[in-house]
Write a protein that binds this DNA or RNA. Structure first.
Lengths: 132, 132
DNA sequence: CTAATTGCAAACGTTTTGCAGCGTT
DNA sequence: AACGCTGCAAAACGTTTGCAATTAG
């Protein structure tokens, strides 16, 4: 893989933590501030490469692909009210034990996605407006 | 929710097991044999309703929405080679134990997706063609 | 020099939507 | 009669792709 300024900035932006589980579009917007002519297609191409080479992880929550710099196995929680996506720690050994996997299957990746109401939204279930 | 012949046929088709984790398009094709004028939009609208009311479960694997008549909590395995999606049993108590959930969160749904090579594809990794 | 990478725009597949009319209750 | 549901077609959405030009090694 050859070096490119756009890939460097994309990876830097996602790793910086300034964005939280960003979509390709959010990464595009952020990187564009430093490199205004970068195209959305380039962001998609690079995110895909970075996920393939294991430098980033992909999360498929609500319709869009999101990207995550945390590489250790962990779960995600999506709040159906405010839409916030948060990281959840998991005990990998225990998780593996819970799965009754038929013999012969080779597992390459695990994605555990929890949906519900987050701690901030659950109590306020009665009030109509999502917090910012 | 009012009754309709199209929703009845859609639910019947998915529950029948003739289709395996079908996409909306596959459900459309199947139901169209019995009700030729049914539109894809109607299939989408009804699948969404049936998932919302808990009569079916949704699985988000590869780009598209798939639908599953199995209601008990279980995991899914997607083979990256042949694309086959299979059901995997999980020990729910053990799974819950593996998740280090911060207090206050209310979990409504859990989706556990495993990706890799299925028992049939893993050994044949060298041969180029996916089984049917 | 070579081949990977880019910006751009067009195309793709999936899902949603606006609408006028039909079907269920 | 009221209103949910339908078919249809158009649009929205996220993502991929073809291309000629640029850039890294």
């Amino acid at each position: 893989m050859r070096h490119s300024r756009q890939r460097e900035l994309i990876l830097d932006e996602v790793r910086s933590g300034r964005l939280d589980h960003p979509t390709a579009l959010e990464v595009h917007d952020a990187v564009r501030e430093r490199l205004p002519r970068i195209s959305l297609g380039t962001v998609y191409r690079n995110l895909r490469q970075l996920v393939e080479t294991g430098e980033l992880k992909a999360v498929a929550a609500d319709g869009a692909l999101r990207v995550d710099p945390r590489l250790e196995p962990h779960a995600h929680f999506v709040c159906g009210r405010c839409g916030r996506l948060s990281d959840i720690d998991v005990d990998l050994a225990e998780l593996a034990g819970a799965v009754r996997l038929p013999g012969g299957h080779e597992v390459a990746a695990v994605e555990l996605l929890l949906t519900g109401r987050c701690a901030r939204c659950a109590p306020a279930e009665t009030t109509p407006d999502p917090h910012e």
